[in-house]
Amino acid sequence: MTRGLALLLLIAILLAAGLWQPHDPDAVDILARHSGPSLSHPLGTDHLGRDLLSRLMIGGLRTGTVIVAVASIGFAGGALFGTLAALLGGWRETVILRASQVFIMVPTLIVALTAAAVFGLSPLNAGIALGLAAIGPLTLFTHSLTKRVLGQPFITAAVALGVPPLGMLTRHLLPNTLPALLTYIGNQSGAAAIAYASLAFIGLGADPSLPDWGGMLFEYRMFIFDNPMLLIWPGLALGVTVFILNRMFDR
């Protein structure tokens, strides 16, 4: 319950921060660069004199979008197909599994690169591409988990007792597969924002004018030794978010 509240609170904060910032996050003030915390700039300014807090705030919304895109696309697709395949069996199972195995072989890098080449690399495009790329592996992951639970004696017993399919799914199957699945998703969701920063590093190029936490880590990497706070703040913001997500699902 409190976990759900924490998640709602997180979403509310990200939304509010994305809609209003104390300064224009893109406004450059070269004379005030690398300034320390002050009343006007609580977290100081970056190498171009832009307000770090404002950039963090607007960046959170973009980062949140990426995380939600990756997690929901990947989770919805993967959990659905994986459970279906395991339950249906027969040729339908074979088709779903083969399709995911084909899907999984397309390198994430190629998916992201193609998306970047065609649509431009924005955090959201990257999130959708990464989410789509996650469906294949998650389907296989869910499928193998479900299969394993289905082989357990208590399922055989439930079948013998004549538990209806839906009750079977909700009462016996999901409670046994969801925890591992959610752990996996919770553990992977933040990775998307970071994957985006790494894609930028590889040379796809993040847009320095559309800050998101991952992109900020990339942009400020030049100051990792000289003004490390520029990296610590977005890293910390990302860390807290990931931590909440992990706690949500990790029992």
Binding site: I194, F218, G239
Partner: peptide, 12 residues
């Protein structure tokens, strides 16, 4: 560590 690896990109 799991939180850290998701908040710090590998190049950093």
């Amino acid at each position: 560590l799991s939180v850290a690896t998701q908040s710090i990109p590998i190049f950093a």
